[in-house]
Structures are given as C-alpha cells and as structure tokens.
Design a protein around this nucleic acid. Structure first.
Lengths: 342, 342
DNA sequence: CGCGGCTATACATACGTATTCACCGCGCTT
DNA sequence: AAGCGCGGTGAATACGTATGTATAGCCGCG
C-alpha cells in the first residue's frame, strides 16, 4: 500500500530514457528535445512523481526556501504579533509559491543565536526579518548576518546604518495625507499622539509628514499638541488624559497607530465628546478592528499585499543577484466616519 | 570570505575522530563515549558547524518539517485569514521548535492538487489543515490523503466521517456557558444569531449548548428567537433587523461569532438600544476587536495557545507513532461590559 | 566521401549525512 | 590460558538528484 516513492530512475525507465534526461526535462533544460520532454512529463504524471526536495537541495547546495523570522518583543505567551505582519503573511506565501520557493516560519528571542541556524543548516537561502525596527540593539545582529554573507531583508524604515535591503511604507507621506485630510475637513488644532522614542522609528516619519502638511497650510507644528503614546489602547487613553490635563484644546487627533486611536476614541466618548463632530480622528495601519469600531475609524492604510510581495521579491533578488534595492511603498488614506465633515 | 561551509568531515578531522563518530555524537547516540562526544561538540562549536538539513533529510528519508495549510475560502486577495488561526501561529511555531521540527506555511485553493506536493516531494512529514471544516466537498480530498498514507490533522469539529485526528474547541460547552451566564444576569429572552448551515459545523454545537443551558433552567428553546447569520459584520446587523422586523422581543443576544456580535451591537446602538442595559450581548471567539469595541464585548475565549500546541502534538504523534488521538479543548467565558448585570 | 560541427542523450560523479557491518582491544569466565 | 562478549570506533555505502564530460547520430560542405 505505501509502496516505494518513485525516483527519477523509475521515470527514466518508464519513458525509455536515462535519469539525467529526466532531470533535465523536468527542469526545463533546453537541450532536451520536445518529444522526449513530453514523454518524460507524461511518465512523471503517471507515477505521481515529485522531485525530492532534499536530494535536489543537497545537489544544488541550496534549499529554495525562505525563512520568515518574527521578532518577539513580548517575552512569553505573545499571541501579540503585530496584526499588520499577519496580514502580510498570505501575500508572502503566495509570492513565494509563484517564484518557486517555500516559506519557513519562526519566532525568535533577541538573545538566541538564530543567525547561525537558518543559513548554516541550509534550511533557508535567506531570511525575512519582521519586527526588527531600527533599535540599536539589533545592529550587532545585522552586522553579524552581513559578515556571514547571509541574505536578508527587513521591514521598516531604513534608519541609520543601512544593513541589507529594506522594505517599508511611505510613513512620511501617510502622515502628510492624514493631516492634510483633517485640515481639509476644517480642523485647525490637530493633536498628534505617538512617541518620539527611537523604538518606533515609523512614528518619527509620520510626525514629519504631519508637520509638512501643517506648514504647507501656513501653520507651525505646536509641541503642546503632541502627546507620547506607545501602540496600545491604554496608552491612547492616557494620551488624551494627558492632553486634557494640560488644558490643551484640540478639534482633531492624528494617532500614529490604530490601537492608540481607538484608545483615544474611547477616552473621548467616555467624556461625552462627540466623534467626529467635536473631535475628528485619524489613525494609522488599518487593522481589522478599525472598520469595526464605532464610529468606524479613518486611517492610513498600508499596502499589506504589496509589502509582502516586495519583501519576498527583494529577498530573492538578493539571493539570486547578490544584492537587492530597498523599496518604499505608497500608502492610502481610508476615510471613514471618525473624520467625516460635520 | 564566504569560505566553504564546514562538513562533518571537518569536525571529524579537528576532533581527531572519524565522520561517523561525529554524526553519532551529535545525534546523541549512546555508543559514543562521553570524552569523545565532548571533543566533537567542542569542535562543532568552534567551526560553527550545523548539520546540513538536506543531506540529513535525504539520508533519513524525512524532512523534520511540518506543513501548515490554510484553506482559503475567499478567492483572490484574501488578507481574510481567520484571526483565530493567526493567533495559533505563534504557539504552533514554538511547539514545533521545541520538538525539533520546522514549520512550512502554505495557502491552497480547493481545486489544486496540493495533496501530492508536500509529502511526495518530501518537503514535510505531515500536514496541519486549517479552514477545512466539515464541508462535504472536502471529504474526497481527505480520503485521498488517507489513501496515500499522508499524515495530517485538522482543526474543527470531527463531524461525520472521521478522517485522521481532529483538534477542536468544546463548542457545545462554550454555548452552554454563554447562555448560562446570560440567564444568571437575569435575561430570559435570549436571541441566538448564527447559521444552521453545515458550512459552519461549530455553530451547530454552539446552538446545542445554548439549548442545553435553557433546558437546564427549565426553559425551552424558541425557534423564533433564532436568526441566521454568517460570520460577518453586515450579517450580524441584518440578523438584528430580521428579528426586529419579525416583531420578536429579546433582552439578550448570544452570537455564534464575534464579528456577528459586533455587527448586532452596531445595529442596536444605531436604534438607540442601550447595551447592556436593554440588550446584553455575548459573542464567541475573542478576536482582538472584541476587547476594543465599545462597550467591550463579552465572549467565549478559545484557547489559541492550547489549540496550536495540540495540533502540533497530534501531528507529530501521528508521524512518529502512526496514529494520533483527537483532542477537544476547554473554552473560557470572558465577561466584559456588554453583558454586565445592570 | 570524409570530416567538422551540432544536437540529443548517456555515463559517471559529487553533494553531506546516517547507518550497517566489521574490527579491535580489553576484561571476564571456565 | 584460551575463548567470548562488549564497548567504542572506523570503513564502506546508499539516499536521489543535477551537472560536467563523453559519445552517438546527423547534416552540410568542400
């Protein structure tokens, strides 16, 4: 019942050719004549033959596999993967499949020496890093990857030193679009909620775009309208409390992430402030919960599909060509109820 | 700079032993003496040696890799993976790592013949199926997997015919807990929103638990209090419209999924019905948006971590022992504002 | 008519590991 | 004292593929 798996020799015998011809026929080598190739393909089909990935990889000294590495901030349980990363998953897998690669997935703590593992054991030909921002702590790790000649790309702003290729959203433009939109619906005192810590380099770019939009309308950014917040619901509520506690007046909020925006929305609603009538809100990311909130949250949508595909393309470019160029992806303003004109 | 990768022969030379001894030492074979093993390990460490996965797999005729197969309902873009599946991802990966396996990830359309691919090409030793419910259409596929001797497990209620092992939540108990809770906070007319179509076999079990809770309190389920809905926000709103349109009175809703519950909540709020004062709501799944809704949604939490680990354990059991037992996981009622006692 | 050049295929080999078998030396038994 | 078992190791080999090199057939041209 579980008979021996067919090998290329079985196909060769059935098609009346030699084993090397089978290999060449299946890999599209042009030195095989059309009739022969057809016979081989038919035989392979008939026996349900598939190339053995281990043998093929061993012979070619590669794996035709990419490794996807999520970095975990949270120590233990961490079902807390950034939802945007998860939405890239599908597109990445599909892109890999299209290009003939498999995708291996892994989580890693900062401390462990994963760098050796993937390429050294030939599990993967390259690595996609997700969750490694511009944190300085990672620089030595990236440095080591470069030294070892490991191919990798990472998601996020390029930041200071440029190790390998990078794929990221155009955060600056997203910040510009969000603030410009709020200005267009008549808001003048726009609070910015997001941290300036280097832990979230994206936020800096979003703040930069925010400022550019203000200046384009002849206004100057007001530091008092800025509140620090990490990407969490509580942090968003705290930021609103902070602003109000300091007696700052505002008729709009641009939050550097959706969860922060939702937290801010809850805090305002609890205080009886009508959204969007009294305060218009725009977030960033377009997480699933954004369209489910009430009112539905306006936000800057990142191109998850484009991001996933770009990461895969860049990595394969690095593997097959030796180096890859970085990519910056356009973003898109999605206007929902939370910022509709009154 | 990118010098040749060290092989077990290099380690052997450095440690002053033969290649087979290296292989034995690294794989924990007890016939290697302790001093020798120590020398080998030191040499491997020094040269940064890792076993070549392709060569090892080829020799042992296995891959030490599991394949995770998402089934896609939506045809094209589909960033629409069930969020619960995504929350299982982390735990699955971790469990795999613990047990010495890698995890390969893939999406598949119903039509394609993926079944041949993974085990036939020895990319994976077994398959975890996610999103293959009890749909009759899948029976032939599962049948074929069984015939080919492919190891697999799937998520979801076992359903009719039992192909391979299954891991699922205790949906019946979850339904019971939800309804019992609503009864305890004084509700008497509890609407059930969820479909009876076989496409969502989980819903049937949740309905069953709902009925059991009612009967345990001496009440009989009322068919008029039941509205059909698929798991989508619009469908939840439509279900509320349906109930009200039929003139049905209710003071609580148990929705068979969170997105439906959130839709229902929005519909009621738009009509000015206070939640939970006039209508208490409990959902099922505990998606991230549940805790972000306003009011935060009470729901039945599924054990994503346990689920992920159980799937991996079951599959490895099937691979290494030849067969695996199915597993049913306990669920947990999470009470939030949407069903607090008035 | 013979030879160069070209096409299509076969032959031989290497990739790095795990495992079977044979071997060696030592201590113990009879 | 000779035989035997056994712990520890090395030699040889097979896993299935891809590729460099050799060879057979064939055409055209001088």
């Amino acid at each position: 019942m579980t008979q021996r798996r067919p090998t290329s020799f079985d196909i060769a015998a059935l098609a009346g050719v030699s084993q090397p011809t089978v290999s060449r026929a299946l890999s599209g080598n042009p030195s095989v004549s059309e009739p022969t190739r057809a016979r081989v393909l038919a035989a392979a089909e008939q026996l349900n033959y598939k190339v053995d990935k281990n043998a093929s990889g061993l012979r070619r000294q590669q794996s035709r596999t990419l490794a996807l590495l999520f970095f975990e901030e949270r120590s233990a349980d961490g079902a807390l993967i950034n939802p945007f990363y998860l939405s890239m998953l599908g597109p990445m897998v599909r892109k890999c499949a299209t290009l003939g690669y498999d995708l291996l997935i892994s989580f890693q703590q900062l401390s462990s020496d994963w760098h050796v593992d993937y390429e050294d054991s030939r599990k993967a030909d390259g690595i996609i890093l997700l969750g490694y921002g511009d944190y300085l702590e990672y620089q030595p790790l990236l440095q080591r990857l470069v030294e070892r000649g490991t191919h990798f790309v990472r998601w996020g702003p390029a930041g200071g030193v440029q190790f390998g290729a990078t794929v990221s959203s155009d955060n600056e433009q997203g910040g510009f679009d969000a603030t410009q939109h709020l200005l267009q619906v008549g808001r003048r005192r726009i609070a910015f909620i997001g941290t300036a810590e280097p832990a979230y380099p994206e936020f800096l770019d979003r703040w930069g775009g925010h400022c550019r939009a203000l200046r384009a309308s002849g206004m100057e950014p007001d530091e008092r309208l800025r509140a620090d917040a990490e990407p969490s619901e509580e942090s968003g509520r705290a930021a609103v409390a902070d602003l109000l506690g300091r007696g700052v007046e505002f008729d709009a909020i641009f939050a550097a992430s959706d969860v922060t925006a939702i937290g801010a929305m809850h805090a305002l609603q609890k205080l009886g402030r009508a959204i969007p009538q009294e305060v218009a809100i725009v977030g960033f990311d377009d997480i699933p919960a954004a369209s489910l909130s009430s009112p539905p949250l306006s936000t800057v949508t990142q191109d998850a599909r484009g991001a996933g595909e770009a990461l895969v393309e860049a990595l394969i470019e690095a593997i097959e060509l030796g180096a890859a160029r970085s990519r910056v992806l356009p973003v898109h303003l999605t206007v929902r109820e939370s910022s509709r004109p009154a």
